[in-house]
Write a protein that binds this DNA or RNA. Structure first.
Length: 803
RNA sequence: GCGGAUGUGGCGGAAUUGGCAGACGCGCCAGACUUAGGAUCUGGUGUCUCCGACGUGCAGGUUCAAGUCCUGUCAUCCGCACCA
């Protein structure tokens, strides 16, 4: 019987799609499972082999959960706003809407050809008006609660895309998307106060079942730091310069202060600064540099002393000099620091360069004139009056208490996380639904008028000085104020790509709903997402943003859970055959379409799961695909050796139960490679045996079904097992039948294997020892030697220690 | 610099609590069959000085026993990067 994968796969795919076989049910009495994979950005290149790795993995989980009786929601959609589409549209003079439609059609065709069990009735696209109506609605709720604000601020400006970028989109000083230089530019931007949620975004991680590296990466990204703010007075001027420090204990060692080039002090007291020209020149230099250049470590410290100004150390009243330097960042803490060169590497370097005093206040290191001593776990306070003799930790607490008592400082927690730059000067995104009125300020578009649709135009190129393309459409821009009815203008910036993906998992639950994000009872039933798989690259962007939005929606009572995803796993990357990252320029890209065409979806899926440990990156191998193709064919050919016998043959029962156990557990733990290996091992044994019973076949194809659904469904039908395989129950195993009656134990002498002996599994320890000691080889080898000890591990080994 | 991983045959990778290193697949070798195929089937395949040794990046250590635990070290990859 020939295995015609093309025909078979097409047959089942059409049936599944037409009959909505995998539609999630509205029966809320059933236990639910919400499995989620990151929806793709429908690029012109089509699907990458990385996508099916994630999608097949959760498809296996979803299919297995259905057989286990769960009501499963496993949806798919399109994250379709974004720059590449827009750039393609501009270049080829095709409307981005058309580009998007074409790309989606292609992606959908590809996904269907791989046979995923998505519930296509829940399909969403972020570019759909009925979808982004709610993206805009969420934004308005953020705005109304003061979490969206407009600010003139230096932003990362991509010189090529002509667009402001979030910090997350700047990689190594260049634009994440196009690789062009990123510079600082002042621009009035909409910002979202994600920092307000910083603490909860960290602390709530605790309860979540996320793989550890995601938690760690998010924590590091948010960058919580506990310290204190300390007030320094300037001498002779009524001004308090507040600094942030985690090392309040070292205050007696603060020998100078540094402010960032953008600090307000520099404009406020320009007339007092004797060398103001020099200072201004330094400011200009700093402004020219990109954030990346400023933060390059290797570079030497630079700075200018502020002549004419000085500060007073509040604990010893010593007068200390002030500097301006770009190693102090405006955006963190207060934009000013107290410098303790003896115990901070950066301050030490700066002090050496500018010949500033280095005073040791923590003893325990080497000579602080030679290098800073930064250890906080060893060492005791010196030269610090009331702190002397204390450990660093205690000294910090004591100093903060001292400062608080006198009202010159307080405990303070800081985060590295910055607010989210939410504006893009681009066409292909959700319009920000706000209107500016001279009289009323920023006014929301009334919710009844949502969605605020993206106006039609042929000209989506960005404006000259970085204006949004929408600004050119004056008919659309000019409107009336919803508040006072006067003349007003619309906001012309659009939202970043991350907006639509920050809540898409909610829309899947009820995609047709026009009166709410989703019906409350549906949200209550389906949330949280039980299992979310995606790439590590989304850890600090999408994953954090969507947790932020979800928490906000929780706070305003829209959703019932404080966290969107109960469990998060992450797949490794699939590399090219040469072990390098797949890319067009390297010429090592594998096209999923070719795999499906040449080997079929089942082989492709099986190989993607067999390729290696799921969470690790691993190179593609066309020979590996062929190996899986052989396996799939061998499965098909089981039909040739099928007997009429129901149930398992007696001498094969244990093998069947063991395999069920192994595959069941491995799927749950995402150890797909060893699950497939176990099925390969079993089929090898079946062919050795020469025949397969109906019971054995039924179990075998059910276990394989989540990975290779078309083949197994077809075999189910041909074997007349009744109904469809996707409606059957997951096979059960009997723990007692997973244990062998006889086991092979190892006889060792001094830890070296000398022989292997078959013994009954339930033999006593003494009996085991006796068997080993009577073993021919062992007898010969221990002859004339003194037996010191015999170690017996039941069911495993006997180790005889001799001298 | 900080944080996180990963180092096992020719290759991808297996290996509950420390207990037979190399499952499964690829590749390779030999044979069978043949309507000469992207075949298929059967057997073999860690290394060596092959009656015995040696083998999980490297060097030590703990243990009857170490891929697994401890100390040190090297290499590669990823993330963050002057965060006071």
């Amino acid at each position: 019987m020939e295995y015609n994968y093309k025909q078979i796969e097409k047959k089942w795919q059409e049936k599944w799609y037409k009959e909505n076989t995998f539609k999630a049910s509205d029966d809320f009495t059933k236990p639910k499972f919400y499995g989620l994979v990151e929806f793709p950005y429908p690029s012109g290149q089509g699907l990458h082999v990385g996508h099916p790795r994630s999608y097949t993995a959760l498809d296996i989980i979803a299919r297995k959960k259905r057989l286990e009786g769960y009501n499963v929601l496993y949806p798919m959609g399109w994250d379709a706003f974004g720059l590449p589409t827009e750039n393609f549209a501009i270049k080829n003079k095709i409307h981005p809407k058309i580009v998007t439609e074409n790309n989606i059609a292609n992606f959908k065709r590809q996904l269907k050809s791989i046979g995923f069990s998505f519930d296509w009735t829940k399909e969403v696209s972020t570019t759909d008006e009925r979808y982004y109506k709610w993206t805009q609605w969420i934004f308005l709720q953020l705005f109304k609660r003061g979490l969206a604000y407009k600010q003139e601020m230096p932003i990362n400006w991509c010189t090529s895309c002509k667009v402001g970028l979030a910090n997350e989109e700047v990689v190594n000083g260049v634009c994440e998307r196009c690789g062009s230089e990123v510079v600082q530019k002042n621009k009035s931007q909409w910002m979202l106060k994600i920092t307000e949620y910083a603490e909860r975004l960290i602390s709530d991680l605790e309860e979540l079942d996320y793989i550890e590296k995601v938690k760690i990466q998010q924590k590091n990204w948010i960058g919580k730091s506990e310290g204190a703010e300390v007030d320094f007075k300037l001498s002779g001027i009524d001004y308090t310069l507040t600094v942030y420090t985690t090392r309040a204990d070292t205050l007696f060692g603060a020998t100078y202060m540094v402010v960032s080039p953008e600090h307000e002090l520099l404009t406020k007291f320009a007339d007092k600064i004797e060398n103001i020209d020099e200072v201004r020149a330094y400011q200009v230099e700093a402004a020219k540099k990109s954030e990346f250049e400023r933060t390059e470590l290797s570079k030497e410290k630079t700075g200018v002393k502020l002549q004419g100004l000085s500060a007073v150390n509040p604990v010893n009243n010593k007068e200390i000099p002030l500097f301006i330097s770009d190693y102090v960042l405006t955006s963190y803490g207060t934009g000013a620091i107290m410098a303790v060169p003896a115990h901070d590497d950066r301050d030490w370097e700066f002090a050496k360069k500018f010949n500033l005093p280095i005073i040791e206040v923590v003893a325990g290191g080497e000579n602080v004139q030679e290098a800073a001593f930064t250890d906080i776990y060893s060492g005791k306070m010196i030269n610090s009056e009331f702190l002397n003799g204390l450990e660093v930790k205690d000294a910090i607490a004591k100093m903060i208490a001292y400062l608080e008592e006198r009202g010159i400082g307080k405990k303070k927690v800081n985060y590295k996380l910055r607010d989210w730059v939410f504006s893009r000067q681009r066409y292909w995104g959700e319009p920000i639904p706000l209107i500016y009125c001279e009289k009323c300020g920023w006014v929301p578009v009334p919710e009844s008028e949502l969605p605020l649709t993206l106006p039609e135009t042929d000209n989506f190129e960005p404006g000259e000085n970085g204006e949004s393309p929408l600004a050119k459409m004056t008919d659309w821009v000019n409107t009336t104020c919803p508040c006072c009815g006067g003349k007003a203008q619309r906001e012309t910036d659009t939202m970043p790509q991350w907006a639509g993906s920050s809540w898409y998992f909610l829309r899947y639950i009820d995609p047709e709903n026009d009166s709410a994000i989703a019906a409350t009872e549906k949200l209550n039933y389906w949330l949280p997402v039980d299992w979310y798989n995606g790439g590590m690259e989304h850890t600090t962007l999408h994953l954090l943003y969507s947790r932020f939005w979800h928490k906000f929606l929780y706070d305003i009572g829209v959703v019932s859970t404080p966290e969107p995803y109960a469990k998060r796993t992450s797949h490794g990357m699939i590399l090219g055959e040469n072990g390098e990252k797949m890319s067009k320029s390297r010429g090592n890209v594998v096209n999923p379409d070719d795999m499906v065409e040449d080997f079929g979806a089942d082989t492709f899926r099986t190989y993607e799961m067999f390729i290696g440990a799921f969470d690790q990156s691993t190179p593609w191998s066309i020979n590996g695909v062929k190996g899986c193709f052989r396996f799939i064919e061998r499965v098909w050919n089981l039909q040739d050796i099928l007997t009429d016998e129901e149930g398992y043959s007696t001498d094969f029962e244990k093998a069947m139960h063991k395999t069920i156990k192994k595959v069941t557990e491995d799927y749950d733990k995402m150890k797909f490679n060893t699950a497939i290996a176990a099925l390969m091992a079993l089929i090898n044994d079946i062919y050795k045996k020469g025949s397969i019973t109906r019971g054995e076949l039924k179990t075998f194809i059910t276990l394989l079904n989540p990975a290779a659904p078309h083949l197994t469904e077809e075999m189910w039908e041909r074997a007349n097992f009744g109904g469809c395989l996707n409606e059957t129950d997951w096979p059960k195993y009997d723990e007692a039948k997973c244990v062998d009656d006889t086991v092979e134990i190892v006889a060792q002498i001094n830890g070296k294997v000398k022989d292997k002996i078959m013994i009954p599994a339930d033999i006593s320890r003494e009996e085991m020892e006796r068997v080993a000691l009577e073993n021919e080889k062992i007898v010969a080898l221990i002859e004339g030697k003194q037996v010191l000890k015999v170690i017996c591990v039941p069911g495993k080994l006997v180790n005889i220690v001799v001298k």
